[in-house]
């Protein structure tokens, strides 16, 4: 049996699965549970996260506003608060 995640990856990567009819057939062919199939067809991401029991609170910032090397240099000649100081690498 294909997992829900594998099915999502299949829907995202197969050009022939971009219509509602094709998506519905793919869900049937892969043996996806009816409730989850309906969630996918209705594009209900929040319900899908609940059904799959995944963490909904994901942090996705991976960039600081201030460059760490610049910060270290600034420390020498400024009185900026240490809360902004970077733990240097």
């Amino acid at each position: 049996m294909t997992t829900v995640i594998e099915t999502l990856a299949q829907l995202a990567s197969d050009a022939s699965l971009q219509t509602p009819q094709a998506i519905e057939q793919c869900l049937i062919d892969n043996g996806i549970d009816e409730a989850i199939s309906n969630t996918i067809i209705n594009k209900d991401v929040i319900s899908l996260e609940r059904q799959l029991d995944v963490c909904p609170d994901i942090v996705c910032t991976v960039f600081p506003a201030e460059d760490e090397e610049k910060e270290e240099k600034d420390d020498d000649d400024s009185t900026e608060e240490t809360s902004n100081r970077v733990i240097g690498l």
């Binding site: 995640i5 995944v54 994901i58 760490e68 902004n84 970077v86």
Partner: peptide, 28 residues
């Protein structure tokens, strides 16, 4: 969370870095 699960299924030793985030903690 769903993309995290997707990566989890690609390898048997996937470690999320999410645990390091905390509101109120300097992101650097």
């Amino acid at each position: 969370g769903i993309t995290e699960r997707w990566l989890d299924e690609m390898h048997d030793d996937v470690r999320s870095l999410q645990c390091h985030y905390k509101e109120g903690k300097n992101r650097n």
